[in-house]
C-alpha cells in the first residue's frame, strides 16, 4: 500500500487542476440551441455515468485478481472501488432525475439507461452489505469477489434486456426527446471531454483515499484482535 501513499498527493493535485480547467470550459461553453443551459447538467451526468461503469470494470478486475492471486491489496482496492462506484452511480441517478425534470417534464422515466443505473446501485449496495454480514473477513472478501464477477457478467445482460424492453414499450415521443437531447457535438464537446478525464482522475484519487482508510481499519482490527486473544 506504499504506492498509494506516493501517488496520492500528485494525483490529488492533478485532479484539482483538471477539475478547475473543466469548470472553466463549462463556464465558457455556449448554450445548446435545443436544450439551452440544461446541457450543463450533462457535463456532470455523462462523465459520472462513465465512472459508475468504469468503477465496476475496475472492481471486476480487482476481484478476479484477488481470487486468482489472493493478494489482499486487490481486495482492498475492490472494496474501495465499490464505495467509489456507488457514489458515482448515486450522482448519475440524481443528476439524471434533475435533468429529466425540465427536459422530459418528469423526475423519473423508466428509460433504459436510468433503469440499468438503478439496478447497478442496488448491486453496489448488495456487495457492501454482503462483505460486512459475514463474520469471517476472508470468507466475506471471497464471497464479495465472486458476487462482483457474477454481477459483472450480468450487467451487460441487464442492460440489453432493459434496452429491448424499453424500446418495445416506450412512447415514441420520449424516445425522440431522448435521442435529440443526449446528442452532444461541436463546441459542446471540449468541456465534456475534459470533465470526463477529470472525473477519471477524481475516481482514482477517491479510490486511493478510500483504500488507505480501509487498510488502516483492517490493521487496527487485526491489532485489536491480537490484543483480545494474545495466545493465538
Amino acid at each position: 500500500m506504499n504506492i498509494l501513499k506516493k501517488i496520492q498527493l500528485p494525483l490529488g493535485l492533478l485532479t484539482l487542476i483538471s477539475l478547475a480547467v473543466g469548470a472553466w470550459y463549462v463556464y465558457q461553453a455556449p448554450a445548446d440551441f435545443q436544450q439551452g443551459g440544461a446541457v450543463r447538467i450533462l457535463y456532470v451526468h455523462v462523465p459520472s455515468a462513465k465512472m459508475a461503469l468504469l468503477s465496476y470494470l475496475f472492481l471486476t478486475v480487482a476481484s478476479v485478481l484477488y481470487l486468482w492471486k489472493r493478494w489482499e491489496g486487490a481486495d482492498i482496492v475492490a472494496e474501495a472501488a465499490t464505495a467509489v462506484g456507488a457514489a458515482f452511480t448515486a450522482l448519475t441517478l440524481a443528476s439524471g432525475a434533475i435533468w429529466g425534470k425540465p427536459m422530459w417534464g418528469t423526475w423519473w422515466a423508466w428509460d433504459a439507461r436510468l433503469t440499468s443505473m438503478l439496478v447497478l446501485l442496488i448491486i453496489y449496495k448488495g456487495l457492501m452489505v454482503l462483505r460486512h454480514s459475514l463474520d469471517d473477513p476472508v470468507k466475506g472478501a471471497r464471497a464479495t469477489a465472486i458476487l462482483a464477477i457474477i454481477g459483472g457478467v450480468d450487467l451487460p445482460i441487464i442492460h440489453y434486456s432493459v434496452v429491448w424492453w424499453r424500446t418495445l414499450h416506450q412512447p415514441p415521443s420520449l424516445t425522440a426527446a431522448e435521442n435529440s437531447s443526449v446528442h452532444i457535438s461541436g463546441p459542446l464537446l471540449p468541456p465534456l471531454l475534459i470533465l470526463s478525464g477529470a472525473f477519471i482522475l477524481l475516481g482514482l484519487y477517491m479510490v486511493t483515499v478510500k483504500a488507505r482508510q480501509i487498510e488502516a481499519r483492517r490493521r487496527l482490527d487485526a491489532l485489536e484482535a491480537a490484543r483480545m486473544h494474545p495466545d493465538e
Binding site: 439496478v119 448488495g126 454482503l130 450480468d154 441487464i158
Partner: peptide, 22 residues
Amino acid sequence: MTRGARSRETLLALLLLPLTAP
C-alpha cells in the same frame, strides 16, 4: 454465499432481485 450471514433472508433478497432483472 450467505450461509451463516447476519440477517441472511434480507441479504438474499437484496442480492438476488437486482441480478434477476433480465
